[in-house]
Simulated scan of single mutants.
Amino acid sequence: MKIGIRIAESHDLEQIREIYNWAVKNTVATFDLEERTIEQNIKWFNEHHTRYPLYVAIDQETVTGWGSISPFHPRPAYRPTGEFSIYIAPNFQGKGIGDVLLKHLCSCAKTLEYHSLIGLITGTNKASLKLAERNGFVQVGHYREVGIKFGEWLDVVAVQKMIANQRLEKII
């Protein structure tokens, strides 16, 4: 399988939504409890632009996964830090697509002059924790029992990778 990565386009939205909604219904990878509507997905898509890119992994014409950089926090002082998200279609998991997407997001973060990237990963999501570790992320926090899904308390592990060593004068 040859994995291609490209910026997401509006015609990808339904496949992106299907992947995400599968995760909502079947996993603890997201703490969303209800599937995204088309309207919610369009609003979310429109919030991802140059500073906060959204990419798709494709195999021919099929979207096999997606990854994005979002604001880590809405307050302006957090602007040099982004939060990454990656979701893979269920029948394409375990094929290295997450690695390709995360490497691409890190490269983009460097180009966009982010200082660091953060990931918030459910503590039981061992595959995502290993993905982050393989790609140079380190655990910087562990929030205990901060969410409930499928009738169980869930921990969240914060991982971080320093992307660029920037001088403060350049950021301010």
Rank of each mutant, 00 (worst) to 15 (best):
M1V: 14
I5K: 07
A8T: 13
E9H: 11
S10F: 08
H11R: 09
D12S: 08
E14Q: 11
I16F: 03
I16L: 08
R17S: 05
E18Y: 12
Y20E: 01
W22N: 14
K25E: 15
K25L: 14
N26V: 13
F31S: 04
D32Y: 04
T37D: 00
I42T: 10
W44C: 06
E47S: 12
H49N: 02
P53D: 04
L54A: 10
V56F: 06
Q60K: 15
T62W: 05
V63H: 02
T64N: 05
G65T: 08
W66Q: 03
S68V: 14
I69D: 01
S70R: 02
S70Y: 03
P74W: 02
R75Y: 10
P76D: 07
A77H: 13
Y78N: 02
R79N: 05
P80Y: 01
G82A: 10
E83P: 07
I86Y: 14
Y87E: 12
I88F: 13
A89T: 08
N91G: 06
D99M: 03
V100G: 05
L101Y: 02
L101M: 04
K103W: 00
C106M: 09
S107P: 00
A109I: 07
E113Y: 03
Y114P: 00
H115Q: 12
H115G: 13
S116P: 08
L117H: 04
L117D: 01
K126Y: 12
A127Y: 10
K130A: 15
L131S: 10
R134M: 07
R134P: 07
N135S: 03
F137C: 01
V140G: 13
H142E: 08
Y143W: 14
R144H: 14
R144V: 15
G147I: 10
I148W: 01
F150L: 05
F150I: 04
W153C: 12
A158N: 01
V159H: 02
V159G: 05
V159L: 03
Q160D: 12
K161H: 09
I163T: 08
Q166I: 15
I172E: 02
I172A: 06
